[in-house]
């Protein structure tokens, strides 16, 4: 795409030390897959926080945490956070936002994780807000696809991911999407994976702690590595 050529690669190695993550092409969409409680969401947020530190915009599509708590989370991850660099699309279908907590971040509410058009409108507004705030690049996190899959079928989620990836590509953003690998059958996981450029697998290590590997972004799948 025209817009992506002049943009610089994304370096995610300060979050995860893998060579395959040192030059992630703008427009890439990455699936973060792992069992429940394996730190997928933490990892996705860390990737966005790292971007905020480097001047990238951040967009969070959340099906679990409210917009207010997401903004607070990022305030603690990025102490000198400028709220105008952050957009949150809260899909829980609950109103009652704490305006004070949100500050000058761009927050949008969507009626349900199955309301794809609503999510799209929220993302559009967040991208526009960030663009107007001077962000040329940015990172988007969607947590989680597993919740979306309980509201709508895998075909629709697959297509949604594909269309969203295409939108991120034209914006020059990268996207990270979390999925609970234990919550879906193999076939569903295989289908969803196909909508992404690459994947970060996380799991609990045998000796405690966590490990990860990277598939599909550059060269062969990496080995498992402690994180």
């Amino acid at each position: 795409m025209k817009t992506t050529e002049r943009q610089t690669m994304y370096d995610l190695t300060s979050v995860l030390e893998f060579d395959a993550l040192s030059e992630v092409r703008p427009g890439s969409s990455i699936l973060i897959s792992g069992p429940a409680m394996s730190g997928k969401e933490r990892l996705a947020y860390d990737i966005l926080a790292d971007g905020l530190d480097k001047g990238d915009g951040a967009v969070v599509v959340t099906t679990g945490d409210g917009a207010g708590s997401v903004v607070e989370e990022f305030r603690s991850l990025v102490p000198d956070l400028d709220g105008s660099q952050l957009g949150v699309i809260d899909c829980r279908g609950e109103g009652g936002t704490d305006e004070e907590a949100i500050g000058n971040a761009h927050a949008h509410h969507v009626s349900s994780p199955g309301d794809l058009t609503g999510i799209g409108i929220g993302i559009t507004k967040a991208l526009e807000g960030l663009h107007n705030a001077g962000n040329e690049q940015g990172r988007l996190a969607l947590v989680s696809l597993s919740t979306m899959l309980t509201y709508t079928d895998k075909k629709t989620v697959f297509k949604f991911c594909h269309v969203l990836s295409s939108r991120l590509d034209s914006a020059g953003y990268i996207g990270v999407f979390t999925i609970d690998s234990g919550a879906h059958d193999d076939q569903t996981l295989q289908v969803i994976k196909q909508a992404f450029d690459g994947m970060i697998d996380v799991r609990d290590a045998e000796g405690g702690g966590r490990e990860a590997r990277v598939l599909g972004l550059a060269g062969e799948p990496t080995d498992w590595q402690d994180i």
Partner: peptide
């Protein structure tokens, strides 16, 4: 084909219109 022939998603109204199409299919 999807990314090149049709140029993917070019702008906001394309993006929303396509998403709306997905919900209709569903």
């Amino acid at each position: 084909d999807l990314s090149e022939t049709l140029g993917g998603i070019e702008d906001d109204s394309d993006f929303i219109a396509t998403l709306r199409g997905l919900s209709d299919d569903e």
